[in-house]
């Protein structure tokens, strides 16, 4: 079977935020320019119909990757290929609008992602109007009704304002808006982290069902490993703006390679080992303005060697994924920490 072409291929993506002190302070106090390395050399690809998840702690740059890919930010370095076309530097407005139509986003905060002064019908219909997909007012209303049905709301909800809905319902509206331009690719930036657990499951199941029905491809950003296990085909673990490990979901959760991935999985609460002694991890996430030399994880890593403190590990292929770790490369990692598989979240 020939390999399917990836829908999205990200290569060497980097984005720094300028957090320099104001010009006057730099001139008179001799302060230096400062950059926050939010994303540094991130590469991965997503095949059509798959879900690729990015996980990591707050501030590791996963949301920035999401925003770079839909071009809310302009990437500083690297390429983003969508359907084989590099969209990191736009050639023509027409091509770019085509990309905009095909790649939409679901946002984290359902309370901030809907304009409070617009009716739901206008919110959901906006992409349709903006891309000129339907001109006639009546067919547009009909389409919005179909979309609202699709996400489990009633077409008559179109008359209401966002404040009349709960968080989960708002997230459904957000999904309906993202679907309204018939996209192939959805970037989901922590779509459930602001919701109650019971509502989270509803939204995740809705997203899975939509993926099956519409053949969608997801880039799924999350810090919740249980959610990622439920949703993702492939997982990328980010730490300090870099990818620590990329693997398919099954092997990442059963055989984590990178020490950071092991740490994350070890911190997962589970029902079987209540009260178990856990090895707490020393230290905090280092400041991304001034990251440690070498491997970004070495100050917290129990397997760090002299080489880890000076030389930055590159992402390298291991049998079923990619890992950036000297210890794995050198075979210093104690093998055989087989974790029991997570209980499947009931659908």
């Amino acid at each position: 079977m020939p390999e399917r072409q990836p829908l999205l291929r990200v290569e060497g993506l980097a984005h720094y935020f300028d957090v320099s002190p104001p010009l006057l302070n730099r001139v008179f106090e001799g302060k230096k320019r400062l950059f926050l390395k939010a994303v540094d050399d991130v590469s991965f690809h997503i095949k059509p119909g798959e879900t690729f998840a990015l996980v990591g702690e707050s501030g590791c740059g996963k949301s920035t990757v999401a925003r770079l890919i839909v071009r809310l930010y302009d990437p500083m370095r690297g390429t983003i290929e969508f359907e084989g076309q590099d969209i990191s530097h736009v050639e023509s407005r027409k091509d770019f609008l085509n990309f905009r139509r095909k790649a939409q986003m679901i946002f984290q905060d359902p309370y901030a992602s809907l304009n409070p002064r617009w009716r739901v019908r206008d919110i959901v219909g906006e992409p349709i109007r903006a891309f000129g997909l339907l001109k006639d007012g009546e067919t547009l209303d009909g389409r919005v009704g179909v979309l609202l049905n699709q996400v489990g709301l009633s077409p008559s909800d179109g008359d209401k304002y966002p404040h009349e809905f709960s968080g989960g319902q708002r997230q459904r509206i957000s999904i309906a808006r993202a679907l309204s331009s018939n996209p192939d690719f959805l970037v989901c930036d922590e779509p459930t982290s602001a919701l109650d657990v019971s509502v989270q499951a509803q939204i995740l199941n809705l997203m899975k069902q939509l993926q099956r029905d519409l053949g969608l491809t997801y880039l799924f950003i999350s810090h919740d490993l249980a959610v990622v296990y439920h949703m993702a085909d492939h997982v990328g673990v980010m730490y300090l703006g870099r990818l620590a490990e990329v693997a398919d979901s099954q092997s990442l959760f059963t055989r984590p390679r990178h020490p950071y991935t092991r740490l994350l999985l070890d911190a997962l609460p589970d029902l079987e080992n209540v009260g178990r002694e856990r090895t707490p991890v020393a230290g905090e996430v280092p400041n991304p303005i001034n990251p440690p030399p070498g491997c970004g994880f070495h100050p917290r890593c129990p397997f760090a060697s002299e080489r880890c403190r000076s030389e930055r590990p590159e992402l390298m292929a291991v049998d079923d994924g990619f890992v950036s770790c000297h210890a794995v490369e050198e075979g210093r990692m104690p093998e055989g920490i087989e974790l029991p598989p997570l209980a499947e979240t009931p659908d």
Partner: peptide
Amino acid sequence: YVHAAVLTG
């Protein structure tokens, strides 16, 4: 919601 509007081009 402003980001979402940007995404509509």
